[in-house]
Nucleic acid binder design. Structure first.
Length: 335
DNA sequence: TTCCGACAGTGGGGTCGCAAT
DNA sequence: ATTGCGACCCCACTATCGGAA
């Protein structure tokens, strides 16, 4: 294995002066795809469901950044401290802050502290967090972004002390399709495929791809909202499923329709409108904005998971189901 | 000519924090 | 003291336009 010095000597790196060391750089973002593949020139990492975080360490001071250049340092003071105590030179690393629920990263658990701006309060939530690091952009003021991904990972493993809460993100070479399958079985959010020779760019790229684990099921349409702005037809569908003859509200779905669909189905919905909610558990706080319809239409919907309050996360409309009676639609539990 | 990438716009759940009530 | 709303985090998707292929 090449030493750090050898890797750095392969190119004539310019080493920035401390005063020109970047305060923030935009992260490289992955592109979503359904086209899963095996490729020996690509590596595969677990996709963690947390908050993307870039850490700059400059003259011993660590700063945690969100991907939109917001400071996260106050929400995760123990991670900031871990970097500052590690006695490292100026560097920038890229990773994901996560909280675990069992063996699976839990975004909803992380939500209990991710917006808290007081460091003491954040730590007192009792939500334990870790940061999984998967890339290094600068080290000792050397710009490493022109290195290949595998060489950056070599540098990362060599220079970073991985002690809790700082963890290394392991990866698998080849077998992307099989790894994705296993990931979904384990309840992970998915995997990230990365071109092992790619340099680091500060924007969305197709050298990094998301292979997500998506869920889908049929749901009954029990209402809709008014469109806003330039939107035509309706805004979102209000959907649910049956449980012992009662229709349970499962949230709103506002994407996946084109303009023609929105206009056509607004008319169909208006033709079967009713005054009261068909949902047995709908809390009536903003009733004025909702339109109710006879729950007879069934659609197919995609989403990532059920939230703690039993609603769809990241919902989208996939198509109408004309072959299914509304009363047959129940919540599909994982087997 | 056709395709792709980037961007704006509309829609979702959940949480915190602050202004308005 | 309570409530409503904006701003964040996580997003999915459609429409549009200009440049690449």
């Amino acid at each position: 294995m090449k030493s750090l010095k050898q890797i750095l000597s392969e190119k004539a790196y310019t080493r920035c002066e401390s005063k020109s060391f970047p305060g923030f750089v935009s992260p490289m973002l992955a592109t979503l795809t359904d086209d899963y593949f095996d490729d020996e020139d690509w590596i595969y990492e677990r996709k963690l469901d947390g908050v993307r975080t870039l850490i700059t360490l400059k003259d011993g001071v660590a700063t945690l950044w969100s991907r939109n250049e917001k400071q996260l340092s106050n929400s995760y003071p123990e991670i900031k401290e871990a970097f500052e105590n590690a006695k490292l030179p100026n560097l920038i690393i890229d990773g994901e802050i996560v909280a675990f629920e069992g063996n699976v990263t839990s975004f909803s658990k992380l939500q209990n502290r991710m917006q808290i701006s007081d460091p003491e309060k954040a730590q007192n939530t009792g939500v334990k967090v870790s940061i999984y690091i998967f890339d290094i952009l600068y080290y000792d003021s050397y710009d490493l972004t022109e290195l290949s991904l595998l060489n950056r990972k070599k540098v990362l493993r060599e220079v970073m002390p991985f002690d809790d809460p700082i963890r290394y993100t392991s990866h698998r070479k080849k077998d992307g399709i099989e790894f994705h399958k296993e990931a979904c079985k384990k309840g992970w959010e998915g995997i990230i495929a990365k071109d092992s020779q790619a340099t680091y760019v500060h924007s969305r790229s197709k050298k990094w791809l998301k292979f997500k684990c998506s869920k889908g099921q049929e749901l009954v349409i029990g209402g809709f909202t008014e469109p806003e702005g330039e939107r035509v037809g309706f805004g979102a569908m209000l959907v649910g499923y049956y449980e012992e003859d009662a229709l349970h509200y499962a949230g709103k779905v506002g994407t996946g329709f084109d303009d023609a669909f929105l206009q056509k189905w607004r008319k169909k919905f208006d033709a079967i409108s009713r005054k009261t909610s068909p949902f047995e558990n709908f809390d009536e706080d903003n009733q004025g904005k909702n339109h109710w319809i006879t729950p007879k239409y069934v659609g197919e919907f995609g989403f990532t998971e059920w939230t703690n309050s039993n609603k769809l996360r990241h919902p989208r409309f996939l198509g109408m189901r004309k072959d299914k009676a509304a009363k047959e639609v129940t919540k599909e539990e994982p087997t």
